[in-house]
Design a protein around this nucleic acid. Structure first.
Lengths: 238, 238
DNA sequence: ACCTGAACACCGTTCAAGT
DNA sequence: ACCTGAACACCGTTCAAGT
């Protein structure tokens, strides 16, 4: 750029460039704030400070705090939708939804609960649901069956992920390492009877990654419409 | 009682009797407040008013607001534990846990999310888990298998219940009545493309009560240790 | 022992004023 | 068009003071 140092003096202080605020930027900073310091730390003033601006400026881009929470929720839904990779058959498609949900929870441990806070699923989520339902329809599910299967898998994955969060806040990776044991021990209240502490350990230290899939496969098998037409599953002897 | 109007004058105004405040009473009023007006409405001042007392008095019974939320969470766990009716075999036991969870969500639509808010399950919940694990052990599950089955069913029921809450905030009972359709239509944002509105209707209006059990039975079938020892489920032809 | 009034720091939100 | 200062009502919490 030859015309660089021409017209304006550009006073030596190359100030932070004044990146303009925008709804998108505000919401994204809000999500980061929640992820790092928890939902209670999401404060107009704290968020303003993080963006180098007074709290009142945020109202130029987001109508209020409730709207900000809704916006953050929409960000999560969008991230979920972008993360689902379409599968070849209905099983793959539902599996992809389930693992995307659990990955979302792992990446936003503190923000994840707001995903389900609203009363209705926002548009990006509905679009993802649409793709799921279409895949199920193509595989021979009628529409109500498809909606049911979607609900069941979505619920399973969500609930499993939330339990991960309340047990494995430290780490959600494979082996029950020594550090996890230690962190768990520290987080148990001191006055807990030792038999109950054992229970807590048992429930927390099973292999969540593998077992998540065991349960998921069980669910998928049970949702197969080919299985559900026959009334009693056991083999006939004739 | 013959000695009734004896010693004290009992001045005509039979005042509200001054029921003494207590930790239990404070927490229970807090739960009711959350159920009626939402988690954001849980305020020391509002709760004090409801109890006929200034906000600061609450600190004599509960150390602070976070402790109050924890206490409310413990109330929910206790109610869950009291609501589970022990079953004859492991299937019945897990079923009972699942339906108790979903009933809890239906009875405390606004408070239910705080059940999973904490980092660790409180004692009444652990005791319920203990009973579940014992039942599973007795049925031939080894301990890790038992913990896995518990996690899977708990997660499924929780997640399913949360979806109920975000769809059926109006009513969660059987038939998709006209009022539900109406309420749903009202809660959909006006600018939602009509094909996405159709998706929302499909997902919300399936028969959640019946389908909850379909998914649950599928899961239970898949968790049966008798099924999981064989590697590939399809029948052998020999 | 339990409740209260006054006080402090902090929060969401509004609005007139700046540029 | 976007940001700010001052202001208001409300919140959590502390503490000395009442009974």
């Amino acid at each position: 750029m030859p015309t660089e140092a021409k017209s304006k003096p550009v006073p030596a202080r190359t100030r932070p460039k004044r990146v303009p605020l925008t709804r998108e930027r505000v919401l994204r900073a809000g999500l980061r704030l929640v992820d790092e310091r928890g939902l209670d730390a999401l404060t107009m003033r704290a968020l303003g400070e993080r963006l180098g601006v007074e709290a009142m400026s945020l109202y130029n881009h987001v109508p209020g705090k409730q709207a900000m929470r809704d916006g953050i929720r929409d960000l999560l839904w969008a991230e979920l939708a972008d993360t689902i990779e379409p599968g070849a058959d209905w099983r793959q498609t539902l599996r992809a939804l389930a693992v995307a949900l659990r990955r979302l929870a792992a990446e936003h441990p503190q923000a994840f609960p707001v995903l389900l806070a609203g009363r209705i699923t926002p548009a990006p989520g509905l679009r993802a649901f649409q793709a799921q339902l279409d895949s199920l329809s193509a595989a021979g599910f009628d529409r109500p069956q498809a909606a049911n299967a979607l609900r069941a898998v979505f619920g399973y994955a969500c609930g499993y992920a939330m339990i991960d969060l309340s047990c494995f806040s430290v780490t959600s990776s494979g082996e029950p390492g020594f550090d996890v044991m230690l962190a768990l021990a520290r987080s148990l209240p001191g006055d807990l009877p030792s038999d109950l502490a054992d229970i807590a350990r048992e429930v927390c230290l099973c292999e969540p990654d593998r077992q998540f899939e065991v349960g998921l496969e069980a669910l998928l098998a049970g949702l197969d419409p080919a299985c559900r037409t026959r009334k009693s599953p056991p083999r006939r002897l004739s």
